[in-house]
């Protein structure tokens, strides 16, 4: 598997767009449009900052990137398990306002501990550019599905969300192995 595909799959499984489609709170169309746009901007800024500052962040914490892979995997695995069993992202309902773009759409739907840990780990291992490139499609896809909602595709989204949850668990296991089997 090429590095690009691996990174894309990590972010796709960590963000889990179908789970976000199923977890997005009920909002009117106008509010939803503004909230999703705001969430996309907020999430994008957070991810870019995370990837750009990843190395300094780990240096400040005195953690080797290889060791952080293990920590990232430990954060990702429970998120994957949650998605397997609930087909949702853990989040609450929101008020009918643009503020829903910050909570819960940006945090914790588009930006979750699992995705943030992945962004930091990939940012320091592969560089911020690769992290951003791998993240862009899953993020935009998730935002699009958050806007569109699952609608009549709910059963399909439910199945896909669980599958991506399983993929995230598998990738987390691989990341632990990678962290252990690294200099």
């Amino acid at each position: 598997m090429s590095d690009g595909i691996r990174l894309f799959l990590i972010f796709l499984a960590a963000i889990n767009p179908p789970a976000i489609a199923l977890s997005t709170p009920a909002l009117s169309s106008a509010v939803r449009r503004r909230a999703v746009a705001l969430a996309l901007v907020v999430a994008g800024v957070i991810y870019i900052l995370a990837a750009l500052t990843a190395e300094r962040f780990l240096d400040a914490l005195d953690i080797a990137p290889e060791t952080f892979r293990i920590a990232a995997a430990i954060v990702m695995a429970p998120a994957g398990m949650y998605a397997i069993f609930r087909a949702r992202v853990a989040a609450e309902s929101a008020e009918e306002s643009w503020r829903a773009g910050i909570f819960p759409l940006a945090l914790p739907l588009l930006v979750s501990p699992a995705t943030l840990a992945a962004a930091i780990s990939i940012g320091v291992d592969d560089g911020a550019g690769k992290a951003a490139a791998a993240l862009a499609v899953p993020l935009v896809l998730a935002a699009g599905l958050a806007f569109a909602g699952a609608g009549r595709w709910r059963p399909a989204a439910d199945g896909l969300a669980r599958m991506l949850g399983a993929l995230l668990v598998a990738l987390a296991v691989a990341l632990v192995v990678d962290g252990v089997r690294a200099v």
Binding site: I102, F103, L107
Partner: peptide, 17 residues
Amino acid sequence: TRMWKGLSVTLGAWAAG
């Protein structure tokens, strides 16, 4: 607001984790 409350709880849980 509900947003701030939800955000605070979320970030607090993340920080604890």
